[in-house]
Amino acid sequence: MDIRDIFAINLKKFRRAAGLSQEELAHRADIDRTYVSLLERRNYSATIDVVAKLAEALGIEPDLLLKLPPKGSK
Score class of each variant (00 low, 15 high):
28 R>T: 00
15 R>C: 03
24 E>F: 08
71 K>A: 14
50 V>R: 11
65 L>W: 05
25 L>A: 02
5 D>R: 08
41 R>G: 12
59 G>H: 07
35 Y>E: 12
48 I>D: 11
70 P>T: 06
45 S>W: 06
39 L>K: 01
11 L>G: 02
42 R>D: 03
11 L>H: 02
51 V>N: 06
31 I>V: 15
58 L>G: 11
8 A>F: 03
33 R>F: 01
45 S>P: 05
73 S>H: 08
6 I>D: 00
26 A>N: 08
10 N>G: 00
18 A>S: 13
28 R>M: 06
67 K>C: 13
73 S>Q: 11
67 K>Q: 15
71 K>P: 12
69 P>G: 06
47 T>W: 07
23 E>L: 10
39 L>T: 01
56 E>P: 04
2 D>I: 09
34 T>L: 11
42 R>F: 03
43 N>A: 14
72 G>H: 13
21 S>P: 02
19 G>P: 04
44 Y>C: 00
65 L>A: 00
57 A>L: 02
66 L>D: 01
5 D>G: 07
42 R>S: 12
1 M>V: 05
23 E>P: 05
60 I>L: 10
55 A>I: 02
66 L>H: 00
28 R>W: 05
23 E>I: 05
23 E>Q: 15
12 K>Q: 12
22 Q>M: 10
31 I>T: 14
29 A>C: 04
4 R>Q: 13
43 N>T: 14
6 I>Y: 04
69 P>T: 03
31 I>E: 01
64 L>A: 10
27 H>V: 02
17 A>V: 13
46 A>P: 04
21 S>N: 02
70 P>W: 13
40 E>R: 03
52 A>F: 07
58 L>D: 10
29 A>D: 01
38 L>F: 07
31 I>K: 06
18 A>F: 00
43 N>H: 14
14 F>D: 06
48 I>F: 14
29 A>Y: 08
35 Y>K: 09
8 A>W: 01
48 I>T: 10
66 L>K: 00
2 D>E: 03
12 K>I: 01
26 A>D: 06
39 L>W: 02
66 L>N: 01
63 D>S: 11
32 D>W: 10
44 Y>R: 13
35 Y>M: 15
60 I>R: 09
52 A>P: 08
57 A>K: 06
